[in-house]
Amino acid sequence: MKRVAVVVAIVGGLAALFLFGLLRGAPDRNVPSNLLNRPVPNFELPVYERYLAEFGPRLDLADHAGRPMVINFWASWCGPCYAEAPHLEAAQRRYGDEVLFIGIQTQERDARAAGRAFIERFDFTFPNVIDDDSRVSIAYGLFGVPETFFVRADGTLAYKHVGPVDAEVLTERVEALLR
């Protein structure tokens, strides 16, 4: 009887583990950022024409120190990026005075036309910059696009969101930054 119990325990344990795996589905990349509560890396990237007047040809993060920030990484080939874009623009219109929204086109190279089309399609009023060699995405520990970083006024990372953000997440996290 004891032996049967051992067998059932082992098989049951394995089955439970695999059942967990099945219910979870394919592994995602929702790894907590290693930058959490640490200062986010600085960057200086070329800006899309549309924002030249306001931000100049290159955007240096250090120039905006002291403001809370929402940094969103996107690519023109990324489906979920299209899904989240309207929410980002809405949040920018609501919180743009207090919080600096920055879009970073990354993980694609020399895709200006596609990038421009993406920006025009959603009429982004916040600055969008170009990370052609994906260096900034590596500096931020990006697994894929989209990912959104919520940065406190002191420059430390409060939260990283993996995958498309929605209005709820944006409101909650931005409010937290402002508190």
């Binding site: 049967v4 098989v11 394995l14 089955a15 695999f18 099945l22």
Partner: peptide, 22 residues
Amino acid sequence: VGPVFLGFFVLVTLLSLGLVAW
């Protein structure tokens, strides 16, 4: 087929190891 193979794995191990225990 994932769940099906998992079920078969559990069935096979339980029956065969149970038989060994018996």
